[in-house]
Design a binder for these strands. Sequence first.
DNA 1: AAAACTCCTTGATGTACGTCAAACAGATAA
DNA 2: TTATCTGTTTGACGTACATCAAGGAGTTTT
Lengths: 261, 261
Amino acid sequence: MLNAKQEVGRYNTESSNTTVCQTMTPESIKVACSNCNLRELCMPVGLSSEELQKLDHVVATRRKVKQGGHLFSSGDAFTTLYAIRTGYFKTCMLSEDGREQVTGFQMAGEIIGLDGIVSDHHNCNAIALEDAEVCVMPFETIEELSREVPVLQRHVHKIMSREIVRENGVMMLLGNMRAEERLAAFLLNLVQRLHARGFSKSELVLRMTREEIGSYLGMKLETVSRTFSKFSDEGIIEVKQRNVKILNPDALKTLYNPQKL
Amino acid sequence: MLNAKQEVGRYNTESSNTTVCQTMTPESIKVACSNCNLRELCMPVGLSSEELQKLDHVVATRRKVKQGGHLFSSGDAFTTLYAIRTGYFKTCMLSEDGREQVTGFQMAGEIIGLDGIVSDHHNCNAIALEDAEVCVMPFETIEELSREVPVLQRHVHKIMSREIVRENGVMMLLGNMRAEERLAAFLLNLVQRLHARGFSKSELVLRMTREEIGSYLGMKLETVSRTFSKFSDEGIIEVKQRNVKILNPDALKTLYNPQKL
DNA sequence: AAAACTCCTTGATGTACGTCAAACAGATAA
DNA sequence: TTATCTGTTTGACGTACATCAAGGAGTTTT
């Protein structure tokens, strides 16, 4: 049964009680982080209600991006970070001669745009893999509030550090691992993140093409496909187009983390 | 003539005038950033003298690390960042089954340890490639001062963003480029950074083995060696052990950035 | 409902790089 | 001086993955 429950996650994006604060206009309610059920993913925990209210000002507005649309492009001026509310993104770089490298796949609750800080310009493209909505968080505002709210400051640092560590892991994958190990790691990482969002531990719907997976993992789409087929033949997973069911997670973990001989 | 001038850089690590401030004890002078000629590399520019003095407190102490010694190891508790004063480091991860991935090479003026912020523990090893000295900068202090000095706050964000962008570039190398392109990019990056430190644009001394280069670039030491030899045969570089002289930088750039066809 | 897409799968063949192995070059030690 | 080490080079050969090619499966267009 490949009926992945990814479409009907346990999170509503808005709390059921939308009238917590009587003085709020519908508009301000709409962008209130304190009201958002994704908060625990993008915001620090353990804030006082006063701090929480301050942080509501981090999100200036929302923005919708159609499937295939660019949230930002390489070269664009950097002014804001984005928190993904719904939908999936990929970030990718293009080399001079047109080769594409996918540098990450991002999902709800994750922060996108950190690459722009260093030079005030983005140097990758962020493209929606399906219709998406993001919270626009002007970086100036984030910095101002970080100075007043140490918990937020620490949170911002952690988010950036997490990205550095994630990329370290990808370097390990690309530099040292074989195709099977890479794909195993990729699948395990995806379900783990989906699980943290209330989805199944074993079923997932891929939002990206084989080619995009391949670009991320440094292999060709044919190799991705063959490796999926191999896992399927071995009874480790069940693949039906973009629906994947993990039948034997331990086998994947062993592939990814072989024992020291 | 492969007489690389890397040993005798134009920077003295201490300003010649060590008695700027009469009230300073020799100890406090020793760790004063305001006094350090590497400042422009690790510290923000455009600080008032008051701010500059505040920032002197960022560096708690100095620490020497012998060649081959660990500045920190994977699993160590994270409390401080380090600014490299002298010497070279590599950072590397070890997979379960013992494969090593070098994630970066760091030189004077660069900041090391950012990977530890997210989990309060380091998850890579930082190893000195030669006898080295670092400035110990407790992260708590950095955060405190960042709240007071916006320029420092921005600087910290930029350093982390720069690391993210660097790793994006490495992902592109590992995922899309061939051995020659990787090594060309590696050499160009090294001389560029050395040049920013006052060294030659064309001559450099490698601080790492072929195996370490290979680990960073996702190739075996034999391939690194062969590619060096190939460049040498083609008159692009001159190699004598770890001394490298770049004879034709444009050829390297073309290799790294081939024209769109 | 056929046409035209895009995306995916699978087979046959090619190749860049890895593996194995031997020899060499400097550096340090005996 | 010779001996021992570590790091490097180079050759012969093997392989994991890329490339090329054809067909299939959904999806959208006409």
